[in-house]
């Protein structure tokens, strides 16, 4: 079973087509990167897949379940772009809240809490209020919450923004460890250098997928040696003279 299968997905806000006829398949246990400039439709795509917003047309399957009928959210981990956690609660309370919602038992929750805090390197801040943490640290806690219930598929919206380089390396190690365990990871990023670490990527522009495939394949097809040049070449080929 594929992690995600998207067929003709469309979503508009007024006259703006945020997602415009998206077709995409992400195999199970893949790390897939959705790339593109701000406003290209990456976040809207993730929200559509999670059922947070309803599509105007088209459908998608997440772990075999249609988004129109409701996906299995118990098997899904989501890290939004903004921290989206309770600043007036401690790190531990935030983790306990979301663990409880996912039906985790006390013992399992305690073990996983320690594990995810180790992954994000914030074990010492368990009892700190979220509001006392720096922006980067909050972002790391947000990832910890997404990983807490050991989901089968992870949607990560800009997971490495505000994360310093050494920790970013550690994050990528975690993502590849999860991939080895069969977890499908779909992430958005506009760090094109980072996208090279994905198994496959999709380049988005103005709501459309302008290219998809492995990073090496895309660079080869465009005759470039980095993804930034590949993206610029693809974008100008689609709409000459206009690069978002």
């Amino acid at each position: 079973m594929n992690g995600v299968e998207i067929r003709g997905l469309c979503k508009s806000y007024g006259k703006i087509k945020a997602v415009d006829g998206l077709d995409l398949t992400v195999g199970s246990g893949q790390v897939f990167g959705l790339l593109g400039p701000n406003g290209s439709g990456k976040t809207t795509t993730i929200k559509l897949l999670l059922g947070l917003i309803k599509p105007d047309s088209g459908d998608a399957l997440v772990l075999g379940r249609s988004i129109s009928k409701g996906i299995e959210l118990e098997r899904v981990g989501y890290m939004p772009q903004e921290t989206a956690l309770y600043e007036e609660l401690t790190v531990h309370e935030n983790l306990k809240l979301f663990g409880g919602i996912f039906g985790m038992k006390k013992r399992a929750l305690e073990e996983r809490e320690e594990e995810v805090l180790r992954i994000v390197d914030l074990k010492g801040r368990r009892d700190s209020l979220l509001s006392e943490l720096s922006g980067g640290q909050r972002h790391r806690i947000s990832l910890a919450v997404a990983l807490l219930h050991s989901p089968d598929i992870l949607f990560l919206d800009e997971p490495t923004v505000g994360v310093d380089p050494p920790l970013r390396v550690s994050f990528w190690k975690t993502f590849h460890d999860l991939k080895r365990k069969g977890v499908t990871i779909i992430m958005t990023t506009h760090y094109l250098d980072e996208a090279r670490k994905c198994d496959n990527i999709g380049l988005m522009r103005s709501g459309k997928l302008i290219s998809k495939g492995s990073p090496g394949r895309i660079m080869k097809d465009t005759g470039t040696d980095n993804l930034e040049d590949a993206f610029l070449k693809l974008a100008s080929a689609r709409s000459p003279g206009v690069i978002a």
Binding site: Y78, P80, T83, A84, Y86, I101
Partner: peptide, 13 residues
């Protein structure tokens, strides 16, 4: 405004 509602909506609750 903080996005927590949408995060909650992406859980089984």
């Amino acid at each position: 405004t903080q996005g927590t509602l949408y995060r909650l909506m992406a859980t089984p609750i």
